[in-house]
């Protein structure tokens, strides 16, 4: 875990300024709150003027904070740097989200708030009750029982549900699919569970293009309280093989 060598620290506050989760406070010297720290590496990259910050190699469960929070860390299991899968970026090749389906990305802790994993589990459990299909090769999916959404000890790191619940990360993306008919129900579920979490989450809805617009747009347009933001991501269909 990141720590400060007190004998070297000159309390300039640079590390605290760059820390995205305000885990560093400065008095006589800088102090890292280990519960709040998500091991994102930003303070290290900010380059301490007296080289007083240290980040030793991490082991599970602490390592998972880094894997979920530092975009330069790579999940060995997915070989994807960052925190999720390739989402819709290669959907023109994989066809993972088909016409008639909805792809979802619920990004816990985003933007910049961070999330406890107890909140991640609240959301995965609520979604599991709706029978969603959690995506394999997603780091959150690797930590849960896909039927219940609860954390399980059957994960690649062999850590216990209790250890997972004690984690915090800058973000944790829950990725899943549903039939398009379930879209209103999933939105209702997310609205309900949003009142139970101690953080924020950002919601992305992946849709195939059909008849001159996103196929799912008419389904979400009229739902009270839901606003589709003016900007989004567009896969151009130029990947060719398998498309």
């Amino acid at each position: 875990m990141v720590y400060v060598v007190r004998e070297l620290c000159v309390a300039c506050g640079k590390c605290a300024l760059y820390c995205p989760v305000e885990a560093i406070t400065v008095g006589e010297y800088a102090f890292v709150d280990q519960e709040r720290c998500v091991e994102c590496g930003t303070c290290i990259r900010a380059e301490c003027p007296v080289d007083a910050l240290r980040q030793p190699d991490l082991k599970p469960p602490r390592l998972l904070r880094k894997l979920f929070s530092d975009p330069l860390a790579t999940f060995r299991e997915t070989e994807v740097p960052g925190r999720g899968t390739e989402e819709m970026k290669t959907n023109d090749v994989t066809n993972n989200v088909k016409v008639g389906e909805a792809g979802w990305g619920v990004e816990m802790g985003r933007p910049g708030v961070s999330t406890k994993f107890t909140d991640v589990e609240k959301v995965t459990m609520a979604l599991a009750r709706q029978g969603v299909e959690f995506l394999d090769l997603n780091p959150v999916t690797m930590l849960i029982d896909k039927k219940t959404g609860m954390f399980t000890e059957k994960n690649p790191w062999g850590i216990s549900p209790g250890e997972i619940r004690a984690l915090r990360s800058l973000s944790a993306i829950i990725e899943f699919k549903t039939p398009k008919e379930k879209v209103p129900e999933i939105i209702k579920t997310l609205m309900e569970v949003s009142k139970e979490v101690e953080t924020v989450f950002s919601v992305g809805l992946i849709s195939r293009w059909k008849d001159g617009e996103p196929e799912l747009l008419p389904l979400v347009r009229g739902i009270p309280g839901i606003r589709v933001y003016p900007n989004g991501k567009h896969n151009m269909g130029l990947g060719r093989p398998g498309s």
Binding site: E87, M88, N91, D92, V97, G103, G105, R110, P111, G112, V113, I187, L190, M191, S194, V197, E198, T199, V200, F201, S202, V203, G204, L205, I206, S207, R208, W209, P214, L216, L217, V220, I226, R227, V228, Y229, N231, G232, K233, H234, N235, M236, G237, S243
Partner: peptide, 17 residues
């Protein structure tokens, strides 16, 4: 476009933003 990802915004404890 082949596929589109629409943002439905941020939900939850908005006062933390």
């Amino acid at each position: 476009p082949h596929t589109v990802n629409m943002s439905l915004g941020t939900w939850g404890r908005m006062e933390l933003l």
